[in-house]
Computed example of a mutant assay.
Amino acid sequence: MRKYLRLPSDYKFAAGYDDSDACAVILAYLIRENLIDTEADAA
């Protein structure tokens, strides 16, 4: 998730919030619907 969101490797989501879960769900949806290019971002 950090790679696709271009977050630094040491980025920490706030404790007690569901923001990382929400980002993962959105990212999974975008990948499933082919709305983002996962091949170009893999580099």
Rank of each mutant, 00 (worst) to 15 (best):
D19N: 13
F13M: 03
D10R: 00
N34C: 11
V25K: 15
L30D: 01
G16A: 07
A40G: 02
D41Y: 00
D18E: 10
A14H: 01
A43W: 00
S9N: 11
A14F: 00
E39S: 10
V25D: 14
A42P: 02
F13G: 02
E39P: 01
D37C: 02
A15F: 04
D41T: 06
N34Y: 04
P8D: 14
A24E: 14
G16T: 07
Y11P: 03
D19H: 12
F13L: 07
A15C: 00
L30A: 12
G16S: 05
L5I: 07
I36K: 01
A24M: 08
R32V: 08
G16E: 06
E33G: 03
Y17C: 10
A42L: 08
Y29F: 10
A42E: 13
R2M: 05
D21T: 14
L30N: 05
K12F: 04
D10N: 03
E33V: 01
R32D: 15
T38I: 15
P8R: 10
I31Y: 06
P8A: 08
Y29C: 09
D37H: 04
R2A: 08
L5S: 05
P8E: 08
M1C: 09
T38N: 07
A15K: 13
Y17T: 14
Y11I: 03
S9I: 04
L27E: 04
A43R: 11
R6L: 09
A42F: 02
A22Q: 12
D37M: 01
E39C: 07
A42H: 06
P8Q: 12
Y11A: 03
R32G: 09
K12R: 14
L5M: 11
Y17P: 02
K3L: 03
Y17V: 13
G16I: 08
K12C: 07
Y4E: 02
L27I: 05
A42K: 12
E39I: 12
S20W: 12
M1R: 11
Y29E: 13
